[in-house]
């Protein structure tokens, strides 16, 4: 362990895993030496990557065995293709079989369009595998704070996790800003207005409305500590939990369904100066959020 702070946002998939798990505990499944590359990218004359943009394997956190996955957001935007998705599906099925917790470092734009049909079904297979692993007693902890954010089907998978840990950079949404703007016009969504994008989809907003559970600084150590805490939380997925989520999500529409902007929601939560939120440092924001946020505990 070094004392040098490591940015989660800047780190690659393998660096994130190294920062998360106990030293020398990681054993990769179907590593790059196997060259299990996408069979489809060459159709588009696009270069493949030996791990297809996701690293999966077994490791330990504080001596406790876990399964771990990290997406590489710099390769094809971390998007889900056939092989990429199947690696995560297999890992989650192992989590169910072994009753073992999983930590997933998301960094994805969603489905990889060059293999869209395979990627779309992979997302559905992964969501099913997450739910089944959780019903079998495994925790599935999602970490979101990478370059690509967590968009499209990635956002749906995240919504199936037990606990979500985000940094400010951890944008979660279904349609990306450019997609909404292209389809609905700049009046509906100005993808170039960075402040607007981040307060609508970013980690702070998601934390405040209960779309994410734990807010951390853009620091690999902070992600590790938050993951450790999340792995100590109760496990499971049952009818009571989904009924509580139903009530939580209905309440959100009832309270904030007419809010034109995130700042209106934040004010509605009781925050006196919502305009100050975007520039607030992580520690100060986490304290404020703890006081005012909508919690999703036992309701996700």
């Amino acid at each position: 362990m070094s004392n040098v702070r490591q940015s989660w946002y800047e780190a690659g998939a393998r660096e994130r895993i190294a920062a998360l798990v106990d030293a020398a505990s990681f054993a990769e499944f179907i590593g790059p030496e196997r060259r299990e590359i996408s069979p489809h990218l060459s159709i588009f004359d696009l270069p493949a990557q030996f791990d297809d943009g996701i690293v999966v394997g077994a490791a330990a956190i504080d001596g406790t065995p876990v399964l771990v996955a990290a997406q590489e957001g710099r390769f094809m935007g971390g998007a889900f293709g056939e092989v990429h998705g199947a690696k995560l599906t297999g890992l989650l099925r192992a989590a169910k079989a072994l009753g073992r917790d999983v930590v997933i470092a998301f960094d994805t734009g969603g489905v990889r369009l060059q293999e869209a049909n395979a990627g779309e079904i992979a997302i559905a297979e992964i969501m099913r595998a997450v739910a089944e692993a959780r019903m079998a007693g495994a925790r599935v902890v999602g970490l979101i704070g990478g370059r690509a954010g967590c968009y499209g089907g990635g956002g749906l998978i995240a919504g199936c996790c037990s606990t979500l840990i985000v940094s400010e950079q951890g944008r979660i949404s279904v349609s990306g800003p450019e997609v909404i703007e292209t389809n609905k016009g700049v009046e509906e969504f100005d993808s170039r207005d960075r402040g607007f994008v981040w307060r609508t989809m970013g980690g702070k907003h998601r934390t405040l409305i209960g779309g994410a559970d734990v807010f951390v600084d853009d620091d690999a150590t902070a992600f590790r500590e938050a993951a450790r805490a999340a792995l100590a939380r109760p496990a499971g997925l049952d009818a009571a939990m989904l009924s509580a989520e139903q009530a939580r999500l209905e309440r959100r529409i009832a309270r904030f369904g007419d809010a034109p902007d995130a700042t209106d929601i934040w004010r509605g939560l009781g925050i006196a100066d919502p305009q100050a939120i975007p520039d607030m440092p992580a520690a100060g924001f986490a304290d404020l959020a703890a006081q005012y946020r909508e919690s999703a505990d036992d309701a996700r």
Partner: peptide, 17 residues
């Protein structure tokens, strides 16, 4: 649904739910 309102309120959670 592609809209500012749906994403603001957390569409990913509703679809996942």
């Amino acid at each position: 649904r592609m809209s500012r309102r749906d994403e603001l309120l957390g569409l990913s959670e509703y679809l996942a739910h």
